[in-house]
Amino acid sequence: MTILVVEGLSKSWGGNKAIDGMTFSLEKDAMALIGPNGAGKTTLLSSIAGITLPDQGRIIFDGIDITKTKIWKRVGLGLVKTFQVVRPFVSLTVRENLELFSRVHGGSDIDSVLEVMGLSQFGNKKARELSHGNLKRLEVAKALMTNPKLLLLDEPIGGLSNNEAVGVIDALSSLKKKGTKMIIVEHRLSEIFPFVDSVVVMDKGKKIFQGTTTELFDDEKVREAYMGGETNVDS
């Protein structure tokens, strides 16, 4: 069964259409959602997660219509999103950041999550003392605490060094092997493409491409959206 179906989703911010009739479904295990800055990727993920209320459209997760479901209830169903700009609980330690969610959706084992995300040695450090790279990992780790079936990742390796990025991608690969499905928004295509099964490209709120990574580079529209330029940009 398809775990996620999105139908005709639209959202405007004061007249400016951030997403405009998006329709897609998650067919395989991991999908990349890409597009230029301001394409509406974050707004789309937020609408799916319930952080933003869409103006129109339906979202069906695991066979249930969740368009009007509260955010925290969606997490309970197994759907969780990370933030593009990390939002750690700065006055808590790394371990406490995770322990907060130890009772959501059955909860995960804190030590194994720390292990998977490579944060074991920082467990007792205050989150405000972490480096940016580790905060990005903590952001994913928090989401993992909720035992998600579908993980929505908003630029999980944005702003990381190459080494750090490899660490995060490895962790995501092992999750994928264990059966967690995910949608990844990222600008660093070369690093995530080996790992995803399909790609959706957005531009100006609309879907302009859906297919595999190999099909992607032959697509005229996609090239136009990126203006034939360098796609490997960080933001």
Partner: peptide
């Protein structure tokens, strides 16, 4: 306790708690 942890989390960033599954 865990309850207190949630309270301290609310002081830091309540929306981040809600969007990660705790009401």
């Amino acid at each position: 306790t865990h309850f207190g942890l949630v309270l301290r989390g609310i002081g830091d960033d309540e929306d981040a708690i809600i969007s990660n599954g705790l009401n």
